[in-house]
C-alpha cells in the first residue's frame, strides 16, 4: 500500500503545483497588473478580493493546504537530489538544479511575504496603494528581495509547467518537449515582465488618481 501511496503523492505534488497553486499565481500576477491600469482600480480590485464571500475557506482549501503540501513534500524532493550541474553542464540539468534552488528561494520569500503583509494589514481600508508604495520604497534591500523572490517564483512556475507536461506524459518525444520548453520560456518572460512592471509602478507612483477621472 505504501508503494501505491508513493505514486499518488508524487503525482499529487506535481498536479497541485499547477492546480491550484499555479492558477493562484496566475491570478496574483493579474492582480498585480491592475497597477498598470491604475492604482485606484488596483485598490478596488484588492478590496473585492478582501471581501470575497467564503474568503477564509477559499484561502485555506485552495491556497494554503495545496501550497503547504507542495512546499513540504518538495523539500523532501530537493533533499534527495545529488545535484551535478557542474559536472554535467547540459541546460536541462541546470534547469533541474535551478528548479530546486528557486523552490527554496520561493518558500522563504513567500513565507516572509505572506507573514509580513498579513501582519501589516497594508491593504485593509483605503490608501492601500500608497501604504504599499511607502513599504516598498522604505529600503532598497526590501525591493531587491521582492525582485529576486518574484523572478525565482516565476522560473519555478514556468519550468514547473514544462516538468508537469513531461511527468504527465503529455509531451513525450524530444520535439514536443522542446516546443513546450519554448512556450514555458515565453511564460517566464511574460510573468517576469508583468511582475517587474507592477513593482515599477508601485515604486514610482505615489499618488492615487481617482478611478472616475480615468473613466471620462
Amino acid at each position: 500500500m505504501t508503494d501505491q501511496n508513493h505514486f499518488l503523492i508524487r503525482k499529487l505534488h506535481s498536479l497541485l503545483g499547477l492546480f491550484p497553486v499555479g492558477a493562484f499565481f496566475f491570478e496574483h500576477t493579474l492582480t498585480n497588473s491592475f497597477t498598470l491600469i491604475g492604482p485606484d482600480l488596483w485598490e478596488k480590485w484588492c478590496w473585492c478580493l478582501h471581501n470575497l464571500p467564503f474568503k477564509v475557506p477559499i484561502e485555506i482549501l485552495f491556497i494554503f493546504i495545496p501550497l503547504a503540501f507542495h512546499a513540504l513534500y518538495g523539500l523532501w524532493i530537493v533533499y534527495v537530489a545529488k545535484n551535478n550541474a557542474l559536472r554535467y553542464t547540459y541546460w536541462r540539468n541546470w534547469a533541474f538544479y535551478l528548479q530546486r534552488i528557486t523552490a527554496l528561494i520561493t518558500i522563504v520569500f513567500v513565507t516572509w511575504h505572506v507573514w509580513a503583509l498579513k501582519a501589516a494589514e497594508l491593504f485593509v481600508g483605503s490608501g492601500g496603494f500608497v501604504n504599499f508604495h511607502n513599504y516598498l520604497t522604505s529600503s532598497p534591500a526590501l525591493l531587491a528581495i521582492y525582485v529576486v523572490g518574484w523572478v525565482a517564483a516565476v522560473f519555478h512556475f514556468s519550468n514547473g509547467i514544462w516538468g508537469f507536461l513531461a511527468s504527465w506524459g503529455i509531451t513525450v518525444g524530444p520535439r514536443a518537449q522542446s516546443y513546450a520548453y519554448v512556450a514555458c520560456m515565453l511564460v517566464f518572460c511574460l510573468f517576469t515582465a508583468a511582475g517587474l512592471a507592477a513593482l515599477y509602478q508601485l515604486v514610482t507612483v505615489s499618488t492615487v488618481t481617482p478611478l472616475y477621472s480615468m473613466m471620462y
Partner: peptide
C-alpha cells in the same frame, strides 16, 4: 517507491 514517479527530468 523508486519507480517512474521519482524521475526528476534532468535528462542527463
Amino acid at each position: 517507491n523508486g519507480g517512474i514517479a521519482d524521475c526528476g527530468k534532468s535528462q542527463n
